[in-house]
Design a protein around this nucleic acid. Structure first.
Lengths: 238, 238
DNA sequence: TCACATGTTGACCAATTGGTCAGGAATAGT
DNA sequence: ACTATTCCTGACCAATTGGTCAACATGTGA
């Protein structure tokens, strides 16, 4: 067995390495194809060609079309979870919201295919994600929503419906991955530059913060990381 | 020929009527199927079954799968155009933006299948809509963007990037049709009620207007400062 | 070196795909 | 009533679908 530690010899590594390599090849190709055509519209043959492997090999690695698809969905949800740390009432609303928008934006643009894969699944009625949506994700949203409400009670922001707010952030960031073709067609750009993305991120943060009446938190900055260093969210300059 | 005026007899009407009826049946069914599975993933057989007609009949009416699909896209774009009247610099920004959000929201929820059909097309790289996106739609966006910029110059709103603003409104309204499965799963609702929709519409209008610092038309009341703890112009919405 | 396990893939399968077509059914014009 | 034209659809087609399998290749442990 390859899992046995003593058998992990250098010669075996190359074998496992190529296996891992091929798997990544297949996953990447499948993400592209599934994102573009949806589950039904994608064909194993097309995935195999995109991965430059025989179709039989793809089935050998992944078992079945459905298993491959589910695995991709799981990977995307994992990325999503890895991104979304917990928040507390003690956190600064402006920082949390800005970081949320920024990270969501980064996720969308770092994994556009995965984002579109997810979107296609939801669009089709989420046949494989029903329980995730009404389970894990619902809990996630509810816990954040509660914090938003508490912030509002403390006068740190307006008492807006927190779920609609989360949907607003979700949709407006997701848009730049899912509707990339539309964005590029309308703007006439070939791709979105780093500057564009930064510009969009600041725009969205600004609208959300100002729109929700989030008060600035004046305290020693213990959290820096993702927050934009200078966000003039009330200044009328851009 | 049925087109000849003198031959338009009552007996012929029922013929044309059933034709029109069947056509609508097919279009409605096809919109559902295409929206759910995308162009490739949808099968003519499935559409025919949904319309309770033999497959051959569907092909007979529509010519081909692609022709049917293109026709549905065109119908959706028509609805979209019918909704979006022109705007001028003289109009009131608050009214225009609110109306835009409200109408877009109504369109999304009145034609969720069409909305999802459109979304699936964009998601797949918009193979049938490239020229529409970089032609008609682009012009539409640019003309509106120019007005937004002029409003900003006149001090009626903050000088935000107008294209990002349009995308924000587009995505956040579209979301409730395209990601309906997610919205319902997370909120735990069976459907979105009329009240929910009204609530969401007000929420989005509020965030956009306040977030963009849109001034009220009549009184030159300055609402941009967040120093005011209460909400000057939208507080009473809900 | 050799036996054995694992990796690989072309050939093949039944089912489904979009589309055609012949010919019957229904209606129209006279 | 009798053609003629249009409407309709079951049978059929080549191509493609997801998936299986037997045969072959490769590498491993002794």
């Amino acid at each position: 067995m390859t899992s046995s530690p003593c058998t992990a010899k250098p010669s075996a590594i190359s074998k496992e390495a190529t296996r891992a390599h091929n798997e990544q090849l297949i996953l990447a190709a499948a993400e592209r194809i599934f994102a573009r055509h949806g589950y039904r519209g994608a064909s194993v043959q097309a995935i195999a060609e995109a991965a430059r492997l025989p179709k039989s090999n793809v089935l050998y690695y992944m078992g079945s079309k459905q298993a491959l698809y589910v695995r991709l969905l799981a990977r995307m949800m994992q990325r999503w979870n890895a991104l979304l740390d917990d928040i507390s009432v003690e956190d600064d609303p402006a920082e949390v919201l800005t970081a949320f928008i920024r990270r969501k934006m980064q996720l969308s643009l770092r994994h556009p295919e995965g984002s579109r894969l997810f979107a296609a699944e939801i669009l089709g009625g989420a046949p494989f994600l029903q329980e995730y949506l009404s389970g894990e994700l619902r809990d996630w949203v509810e816990s954040r929503a509660r914090v938003f409400e508490q912030w509002a009670e403390r006068g740190l922001m307006d008492p807006v419906n927190p779920v609609w707010l989360i949907f607003l952030i979700w949709s407006s960031t997701q848009h730049y991955a899912d509707f990339e073709a539309q964005v590029l067609g309308i703007t006439g750009k070939e791709t979105l530059s780093e500057d564009d993305i930064e510009d969009i991120t600041r725009f969205l943060s600004r609208i959300v913060l100002k729109g929700c009446g989030v008060r600035q938190h004046k305290k020693g900055r213990d959290v820096q990381s993702d927050a934009a260093p200078d966000l003039p969210f009330v200044a009328a300059s851009d």
